[in-house]
Design a protein around this nucleic acid. Structure first.
Lengths: 192, 192, 192, 192
DNA sequence: AATGAATGAGAATTCATTCAT
DNA sequence: AATGAATGAATTCTCATTCAT
């Protein structure tokens, strides 16, 4: 066989795309991405047929990284609050540490260039966390909200929190804590 | 002297831009905006020197509309919760009723094409609401968060809530209520 | 109104396209056509939306010129042979005088880039000549061939003749005469 | 020594090229030809150094097939008309049976990508037919036209005839006959 | 001021050809 | 020899902006 497609190159292109999209938006030239990735302009298209394909793959890739960060050390046991807190911690830590990924994700999310399939695949696979949500929302530990609404609130508050953590790194720790308190106040069972 | 610039045309362009940006993103051609506004391609540029100028003006314009919706009937008196709830109600009602404006705003917010000046001006001018925030965060009625953080949380939860209100119009009322409860749980003083 | 579209520019583009297509085939860059026409690359596309549109317009334009050359002095009276000879003379004279147009036409004809509509429109409008053909093929003056077949034969022999006229300009006259004799022998009523 | 080049592959590439060029013109990607031929993209270039080389080889190959069809059963004896008719029959039968080859040939002929050498080689080698032409044109049996002109007329009328045979297969036989009558009328000695 | 044609610098993508495997 | 990934110049078309009318 001839040279096989290189996983390294694929990763380099995705990494470059993350940065370039974060910095310059979805209008960023594929040429710039290719250059930053260290491949020829045409090579990008042997790995991703079109720019939209690249964008969709990028979305899934970032979601994968995020999922890995959130779920790999997820504790199956412990109170709802404890498990939720774990997710929260991992999430904001990851997000604050990967501003490019976060920003690219934000652009992609509102872009209208993701296929329904991509959106669906991106949402999937948070496994045990989904279980936690379904159970807790059902039995009232997380009020009576729907799991989707709770996830959306979690995401929204986490994004907000990360924003502040990045803006004021000195107070990152404090924001993370405040953020979680806000989340728990928002969705945790009403205290008597 | 020649004809003075027409305020009508300016408004038509902004309205068209709102819709086009909402539907097609920031990459949407100025020609499309001009056409929808019913003016010539070149005319757009006598009202806004560059596309970025238009985008910045659009951001401020939508923020203005939002402000008008939130603040025009703002009650100076009443409990913190009551006044906050008023803001909330106006906000999500406006947002659910103006999906184009909301979507355009979301695109603009993450675009990197707004000048710091525009961002600042957009945040300003919520007048009495700012006072409420500053006082309440100071005296503990709204926990100890900074006013900026509280505003960000409010915005984030409201956006999330609107999303669901638009997606499931039949349950709009319920989402609005749940959303406010979440907000109050998140930022209201800790119930003993 | 602003600058109106210029008929001169349209003609310049078509003329340039004729030459460039004749010389370099249908793969010829639009940039080269624009340059030869003395307009900017983008301008070409304000006159013809796509390259295919240009090609179709070019086909019709050349056909128009041809039609003009063949039919403008067409004699309504006279024998079938006389009228056919007139067409022949005009045709080969025009063709030998416009080698670029002829060559471009040949490329377009076999290209598969002409719409059925264009092909149909190009064939139309040879008016009185069509009448001549229909009548003469019906009454046997032109054997029993169908009008379409006779036209095709006429075209094929004319093309061949022009080829030789251009290749050996010194014998142009003689080829034209020989060509017509061949045509008349091919399609004229069988001599007793 | 490494594997010798395979004649099978060479033929597969030429066959694929015939079809692809017929269907998509000379602009057709070499990759598509290679794929249809069942070889790798790069392999095509070990058999033909450049695309133009392939195109020139293709032209000669199709001409060879044609020659084979026309000349293999050529009767050395018989009247001029009889021998000419044999050529005609073989020609239009072959052409109607190989539309791809015919169409590819037409594209190549007007393409400007054939070298003079190729054009010359393609015209050569019709052996005894050339003899027939030279003698008959000289002694007046085929009027006084030059052999080249007669060949061109033959080709032109045959192409036209084939077009109609393919378009209306039900009348193929009739067109073949009519076509030859036209040819004989065109070039046969003037009937007294 | 209003118009829309004109401009030309990109943009995404294609493709003949090369070359590592 | 065979493969197909890699290359980057070339291509068609778009679009913000300018400018003649």
């Amino acid at each position: 066989m001839a040279r096989p497609k290189s996983e390294d190159k694929r990763r380099a292109i995705l990494a470059a795309a993350t940065q370039v999209v974060a910095e310059a938006g979805l209008g960023a030239p594929t040429a710039r991405i290719a250059k930053l990735a260290g491949v020829a302009e045409g090579t990008l298209f042997t790995y991703f047929e079109t720019k939209d394909d690249l964008l969709n793959a990028l979305y899934l890739d970032i979601k994968d990284q995020m999922r890995e960060a959130l779920m790999s050390t997820y504790p199956s046991k412990g109170s709802v609050q404890k498990r939720l807190k774990h997710i929260w911690q991992q999430y904001v830590t990851w997000g604050a540490a990967h501003p490019h990924a976060r920003r690219a994700l934000a652009q992609l999310d509102v872009s209208g260039r993701l296929t329904p399939k991509t959106k669906a695949a991106g949402a999937l696979g948070f496994g045990e966390f989904d279980v936690l949500l379904r159970e807790s929302t059902a039995n009232g530990t997380l009020r009576g909200h729907s799991p989707a609404f709770v996830t959306a609130i979690l995401t929204a508050l986490a994004e907000t929190t990360m924003e502040f953590m990045i803006r004021e790194p000195g107070h990152a720790e404090r924001y993370s804590t405040s953020g979680f308190e806000a989340l728990w106040g928002a969705v945790g069972a009403k205290n008597k």
